[in-house]
Design a protein around this nucleic acid. Sequence first.
RNA 1: GGGCGGUUAGCUCAGCUGGCUAGAGCGCUUCGUUUACACCGAAGAGGUCACAGGUUCGAGUCCUGUACCGCCCACCA
Length: 724
Amino acid sequence: MELPKNYSPQETEKKIYKKWEESGYFNPDRMIQDAIIPSDAPAFSLVLPPPNVTGTLHIGHGIMLAIEDTFVRFYRMRGYKALWIPGTDHAAIATQSKVEKELYKKEKKTRHDVGRDEFIKMVEEFAQNSKNTILSQVREMGSSVDWSRQAYTLDKQRSSAVVVAFKKMYEDKLIYRGGRIVHWDPKMQTTISDDEIEWVEEKTPLYYLKFGDFTISTARPETKFGDKYIVVHPDDKRYEHYKHKQAIEVEWINGTITATVIKDESIDMEFGTGAMTITPWHDSTDFAIAERHDLDREQVIDEYGKILPIAQEFQGMSIKKARPLIVQKLKEKGLLEKIDENYTHRIATNSRGGGIIEPQIRTQWWVDVSKQFTLQNSNLQGIPSGSQTTLKEIMKQSVKTGQITLYPDRFKKTYFHWIDNLQDWNISRQLWYGHRVPVWYKGEKIAVGAEPPEKDEWEQDPDTLDTWFSSGLWTFSTMGWNGQQTDEMKQYHPTTLMETGYDILFFWVARMILMSGYLLGEVPFENVYLHGLVRDEQGRKMSKSLNNIIDPRDLIKKYGADATRMALLAGNPAGNDTSLSEEKVKGYKHYANKLWNITRFILMQTEDYEMSTTEPDLTSNDRAILQSIERLETKIAKHIQNYQLHLAIEDLYQFTWREFADKMLEDSKPLLQDDTTKTSRQYTLTNALIRLLVLHHPFMPFITETLWHHIPDTQGLLMTHQNK
RNA sequence: GGGCGGUUAGCUCAGCUGGCUAGAGCGCUUCGUUUACACCGAAGAGGUCACAGGUUCGAGUCCUGUACCGCCCACCA
């Protein structure tokens, strides 16, 4: 079969993928069945970070798939039972908000207009479409995932794992229900967790208000109606004539009130006048002060962001509308002392939907990360079975003891810092799409489980769970966990590798460590490879507004999946952001073509050569070539095992093009004309080529597999070719 | 306010535990219609490795400090 002059990926990639998939060898069990690897082969396992079903994959997913597939293919060819489990994430808030937006755009309706059941149907339909797109994109990238094990965070199996996990935590009193200050998004009508907040800075006037003998400042005058505590530092000389909890009469916005002086050490004496009033219902700092001194809390703003009757004539107004009017009134009453126009205020927004967060006190479900409990069966170092520990401690020890290694190592510091500051995890959401909180109420009675204790009169909690609750179980819920260890888990858990973006180290990686440590007494994975952001050629983030988003599908169409993968991996060590340009991808398409023509040349030069099982007498030059290949193999393997794919690519590229093609092949031309050197060289080139294809396969699976089948001396799939 | 990165050729970036006469890709210059490839080959230009000190026989590589740039965390009203 004659090779065409140039490689065209478009024609071959789909066919090749189909061949792989139909072979069944993405599933390591089949490799064992067919005796390609022994049944006691060591495991190399990882689970795909499930992409959100919010649309299509972007280039960031591209890098994830490229890295993971490279590792899986490398280990599959090295005799491991390599398992890569695919799946998708329902991404509760993200998916729901996407569908809500569309619904409003198309029909000017909200989710309440269509109702819970109907709305969920719509979301599910949307999710299904996304899933289809995503899964075909995963194929296009060449990902050798085991499709027979595909999972979805909201499918039946995973949902039942969620209930089991919730129930156990509830019974251990690690999950509790409580009224605390939460991040409330009035737009989406739900709470979100600390980690979902995105802070934006905004220039807001800072108002200095007269509060009795004090001067206080605020950027949010609309919240001040209920303020009746004035807080100063206990050591502040200016206020030493006031006693803690002393009552004072103050003329305030809506008349004279009785206020109380509170002394608390959290006050910064340097800021303003060193005195502030507090609004515990709508500010977490203030809430903490109120908790410490057991103070009253009063709600001023409702769930929709409207002002409550406490504000008298302003009631029912939106914050935006009320603020200038309130400022006007303060001014008229002589309470406004001055305005600082150059103040920068930090505003909390919902990173998943953009709404401005209004802190509120609400009753929610929480995971207590600091509570002591007994860990029964533990394989965690530093936490023996039956000992008392906390979820925080589990998260900390798993990394500290080296049971989990992070690549790059420096993320350990951020990780520990995050744990040290960690507060209880708010896991309930007032969303409709997601795992419904498995709690049932009947009057004062409460029951936990997938089903109510009796058919009648029990009502389920209306809230759903934070999407990260279910993704925290991902490494073992994908292996059929339902409260018991499964055969799958025996073989593949803890997984060898978790590969994901550093931006979800806290969201996800930490939660998996928490869940696995708590529920299984073991780590979810042994190694964590964190990749960075993909930026454009100028190093800018990709965004819709900059119109610089690169769709992996476009790159694949134009340059092929192999070139796309290489461009994403080359020069990109773990933890670093990388910038991607079309030029870079094009460069690797040329490289693919080079590889193609290297093969073409060798095939043309060895048409009359029969590969013998025994090595012929080799010239010293030829022995040197094969030795250099051997050195290359050693280096590449070392780099991959050290999680340094970029170094592997660099060496591969340099050797293949600059050494092998430019020098060795050029030198071969006369040698192949000479009968004394011909056979030796033919053997050497064929042998070298086969080994080069093997080395390239994890990075460039399509082209290498294609070429493999053009070489007369090869058998079977390159994908499953056992290299040592 | 705390922490973490970065600053190396025009551009994008490698450079592990110190030995580099400092590398790659793209771009640039000159040459080449060689029957594997012009998605190519040959030759070449281009860097006081941010700055200032220090350790060392020897420093992009280690230490201290400075300046920018980026990111993360944090209850300064």
